[in-house]
Amino acid sequence: MSPDPKATDAALSREEVEHVALLARLELGEREIEEYASILNRILGHFKKLEELDTEGVPPTSHPAPIANVFREDAARPSLSVDEALANAPDSEAGCFKVPPVIQEY
């Protein structure tokens, strides 16, 4: 996918939907890819209205609270036991979360 600086002019293609789904770790079926392309384009079309808004020189707000850098003493506190932490795990072994292979030989 080639990044397009004028992103909001571009309609989301099928390939882009597949790329975004991969980034989002969502397996989409054939029909879903079509559906998402259509609905996401409609929603993004609605969002185009934001282009009218003049934000030249306006700083971004990522957070409404006037709070920064909250520190506490680096003191040991009780935390969950290994058993409690693993109690909801779909699979575990030897006190660890167990998952399918991360690195494979090809």
């Binding site: 600086p5 996401l40 934001l50 934000t55 990522s62």
Partner: peptide, 24 residues
């Protein structure tokens, strides 16, 4: 999907950064 797209390379400024500025 929408959020991933708005944050993805090439679209971040047009969507997410624009949204944060509008928030101000």
């Amino acid at each position: 999907m929408l959020g991933t797209y708005a944050l993805s390379a090439g679209f971040y400024d047009a969507y997410y950064m624009k949204g944060l500025k509008a928030r101000t």
